[in-house]
Each structure stands twice: as structure tokens, then as C-alpha cells.
Design a protein around this nucleic acid. Sequence first.
DNA 1: TCTGGGGTCCTAGGACCC
DNA 2: TCTGGGGTCCTAGGACCC
Length: 420
Amino acid sequence: MNNKVFALIDCNAFYVSCERVFNPKLNNRPVVALSNNDGCIISRSKEAKALGIKMGVPLFKVKDIVEKENVFVFSSNYTLYADMSRRVMNIISYSSPHTEIYSIDEAFVELSSLSIDYEEYAHQLRKTILQHTGIPVSIGIASTKTLSKVANHKAKKDESLNGVCSLVGHEDIDKVLESTEVGDIWGVGRRLSKKLINHGIYNAKLLKNCSDSWIRKAMSVNGLKTITELRGISCMSIEENSITRKSCCTTRSFGKLLTNLEDVEQAVTTFARRATERIRSESLAASCISVFLRTNPFDKKSPYYSNGASRTLPYPTHDSITIIETALTLTKKIFKNKYQYKKAGVLLSGLCDESEIQETLFEKNYNQNSNLMSAIDSINYRYGRDTIQMASECRLGSWKQKRKNCTQNYTTQIDRLLLV
DNA sequence: TCTGGGGTCCTAGGACCC
DNA sequence: TCTGGGGTCCTAGGACCC
């Protein structure tokens, strides 16, 4: 038996909550936030959920409800959300020595090393986060990460719990597991959930009691970890040191369909530049560059085309010019006339730390522009990320995304501060 | 008319080696 | 007619997460 204790802190309807902080009129009203290009609904207030608006649904499919019920709709404002996330995570990190930032709106904390009352800690933390940032959170506490996810789910659903649910010392965890649908378990997605239900396993208690050998076959080693954790034996620990990434990709849908090579090249240039800037900011370099293009898979009337191409360089680089040149060569290779392109992307992989770049005697030096890159980065940091662009991306701007209803950068731009 | 973006990990199967 | 055994590496595809 282990005696670890994990807490999972999860922000409630995070993007919607961020918008509410700066516009209190949105409180107690149905509010949703959209994905890029104003495509799908990816964050919903409690009131919007109550209207039957589902997670991930395309906006146009719920247009009627949105209009009839006066739902407030926001384009995503990642600059704002990222900054609000940073504030919440700072408070969490300060509250415990063992913290793992798991996503933009979630963090795991290991509590067993602290001699505290866990529930009291959780209520206090909730209060502090709300007071300092305006963001409401829910906290689940249990002996494994997977169970803390279950507890968090319960904390969100059951309003009488005041946002905190602890399964530590809980007399009947099985009862909680019985009321947890199998698809709500961390690690069980849409496919596995369907498969399990077909076998009569529709809640967490039934899953927990399956045989190891059957689970190994049906769900691979990850499934085995999941059921072990449901039984209260911890096999996933806190990842305190953020592991360096293995790839970095920038991809977008276009605001309108593109048919010209020049327009697609312009978009690919921007994607390649942004991805390269990101790896540079993390002191990484890439040795493999991939580009992909595709038409709209939902449009059954037009012919579908999707293709990708990659090239591996002789040694890693984080020079925008080299990476963009390579990306454009790849684009020409896969671009075909007469198709209407909806989306493209650039993926950088084979990443290594910039200090490990091995140069070769006989190849062109890709990294000779490093002073130029530093200068571009510092100008873009100071004056906005697209202040200096590449010539091949400044032409028409025809691929730009839809972003009809986006709020200000209240916390990161001095002239956008609210006046009180 | 309108359908997101950015990641990780595992497995099976093929190619190849001796 | 009869065609082994043991291994590695790579890739595509499938699953998951937020």
C-alpha cells in the first residue's frame, strides 16, 4: 500500500472564466469561447452547458440556441489566457514544493510530504486563487493521480462540496467509482470507452475489477496503469521538471479557401517562422522539417487532397531563413493546382539543445545568422510578435483567420489596462 | 457559409541483419 | 517435397490528453 496524496487543481471553464474576470456582466449568463478561426466551442459556462451546448461542437451547429438564448460568444484570446494561467500556476507552485503544471488550466500537487489537513489546504488554496486572479477552481484529492481526477470530477459536479472533494480516508471509494462513467476516466477516450461499454464495463468500479491480462490486451500497458491507479496504487508520479519537447508544430486553418501557390507559401512562411521563433525561445534547434497541406475534409462536393513532405538537414538549426527556405521547397513539392486548400502546417522535429549543435566541415553553415535572429527576436519581443516578418509573408494576408469577437490583452499590453 | 491546435506514447508490421 | 531463429530499427497508424 502506498500513502501518497495527490491534489488536482483544475480551473472551471477556464477561457470563459478569464473573460468574466474583465467583464463581470458575463457572470451568471451563458458564455462560450471558440477555437481558432472561430470554429468550435471549446469552453462553456455552467449556464451554456445547461442549454445543451456540447463540448467541441462547431459554432454554426448551435447557432439557433446561441441567438435565441443570447449566449455571449468569444473568439479565443490565447495571450490573455496564457497570462492568466501563469498567475494561477504561480500561486499553486507557491503553495507546495511538488507541483506539476499539466496543462493551461490544470496542475497536480503532491501533498503527502506536507503535514497539513488536506481539505483545509484545498479550501484555502481555492480562496487565494479566486481572490488574487478571479478564477474559480475545483480541487480533487486522492492517493493516485487517476483517482484525484475522479475526485475533481465529483467536486465539479456536486455543488454541495464547495469545489473540493477528497477521497483520502473516504469510507466507500467504490461507490464514487460506481457513479463514474467509464468514458470520464483519465486515459479512457472515445474509442476505448465504446469498446469497454460493448463488454458491459460502463463504470469505473467495473473497470477496476477487470483482470490484468484482459486489460493488457484491450488497452495496452497504459490501461494497466489506469486500473492499478483506480485500485489506489500510485504508478504515475509528479513530473516536476518539465521534460523538453520532442517536436514543435504550427498549423492553422485558413479564414478562406486558398487556391494559389503564392498564398499557401505566404501562410507556410508565417507558420515556419513562428515555430522557429518558438524553438529559439526554448534554446532548441531542429534537424527535421515537415510541411503538410490539405483541403476541407468536411466538404464532400469538392475533391479531397492531403499531402505532406519532410526533409532532414545535415545538422540542427534554429535559423528562420534556412527553415523557411526548406519549408517552401517542400511546399512546392506537394502543392497541386486546382485544389481549394483549407489548412497547412509546419512541424519541426529532431529537436536538440542549441548547445549540442554539431557543425560539419563540408556543409553550408546554417547558423551563421544567429546575431540577426537574436536581433529579430528582441525587436519582436518589444514591439509585438509580427513586427519583423519575412518578405515572403507580407504580401496579401489572404489566409488570415477569422476572429470576430476577440477581447483585449488586458494584462499584457500597457494601453489595454482597465481603468478603475 | 461556417467543423481547432498542439502534443505524447504504444503497437504492429516490414525491412534488414547474421 | 521440404524453407529457422533471433534480433534491431523504422514508420504509419491509432490511441490518448488538454
